[in-house]
């Protein structure tokens, strides 16, 4: 068997495993490496067929069927309704945008609001006001929104989760994080990096932030220090207070998991 076939079989083994069980950290790394070599395969290559086979086995074999207890169904519906009620404001926004009669009026208001918030957005002190609303607004209004989940680059941060949302057109975005340890802001701060390999040789500084609580997920705005053409990836490092221009620290989290290929041949382990 030649080396390429061996690698392909290895990739398919890992994809088959991924569709049925959690992979270890090493297996995840190996899978990502192999996916880079065989871009025609996607991480979910076997997932639809595994899901369908799974459902078939449940449905065709009565002894395997379980009914969700009614009390749990009721609890889930109750929780859903209360969560849904909280997002009513968001729903109102959505409805307004879907109603042609109000579209023009809202566009004018939004234009004014966006201009004002742009001024406010660049101000560090006001940057952290009304973040959930700003995030929701970006989500509704951006046509080019991209969203990635964060992936820990070391076992130490494997409990971290969350995502990053970014719009090239708006030149803004937000990250949501849970599980990142609190930092001592007098000694160090977390720093966001935006990877735009076609426009910038080095990742662009996206601002620094502190984690002041581990109780609930934190929303942080991304403030690029240079214009971004097309963001291909994001990363977080822990730096000296105030941040740095070029980092030499190891990556803590990345989104997506593997760094997008750079036209400038930057190393994958440091920014």
């Amino acid at each position: 068997m030649d080396r390429t076939q061996e690698k392909l079989n290895n990739l398919l083994d890992l994809l088959a495993m991924r569709s049925c069980q959690p992979l270890s950290y090493t297996e995840e790394l190996e899978l990502n490496h192999l996916l880079d070599e065989f871009p025609e395969y996607t991480p979910d290559y076997f997932e639809p067929i595994a899901a369908l086979a799974d459902s078939t086995m449940f449905v065709h074999d009565p002894k395997n069927l379980s009914s969700m207890p009614e009390s749990i169904q009721k609890k889930i519906i109750k929780n859903f309704r209360s969560q849904n009620a909280e997002s009513k404001t968001l729903q109102i926004f959505k409805n307004i945008f879907q109603t042609p009669k109000l579209a023009w009026a809202m566009t004018c208001l939004l234009a004014i609001g966006t201009s004002m918030s742009m001024i406010e957005f660049r101000n560090y002190e006001t940057n952290y006001r009304n973040l959930p609303v700003k995030k929701a607004l970006l989500e509704i209004t951006s046509e080019d929104l991209i969203e990635y989940n964060w992936f820990a680059q070391t076992d130490e941060f494997c409990d971290c989760s969350g995502n990053v949302m970014w719009s090239d057109d708006s030149q803004r975005g937000f990250i949501t994080l849970a599980g990142l340890p609190m930092n001592d802001s007098s000694k160090n701060q977390y720093q966001i990096w935006i990877v735009d390999p076609n426009m910038h040789a080095n990742p662009v500084d996206g601002g620094v932030f502190d984690i002041v609580t581990t109780e609930s997920p934190t929303i942080i705005p991304i403030n690029p220090k240079l214009p971004i053409g097309k963001a291909k990836g994001f990363a977080i490092t822990l730096e000296q207070t105030g941040g740095v221009v070029i980092s030499e620290q190891p990556l803590i989290l990345t989104a997506p998991k593997e760094r997008p290929e750079s036209t400038y041949g930057i190393s994958q382990t440091t920014i």
Partner: peptide, 21 residues
């Protein structure tokens, strides 16, 4: 994909991630 594939795919992926978590 059929609806059941879509539903069970999301469910399996989420449960596997949850299990890892």
């Amino acid at each position: 994909a059929s609806e059941i594939t879509f539903v069970s795919m999301i469910a399996r992926r989420r449960f596997i991630d949850y299990l890892r978590k």
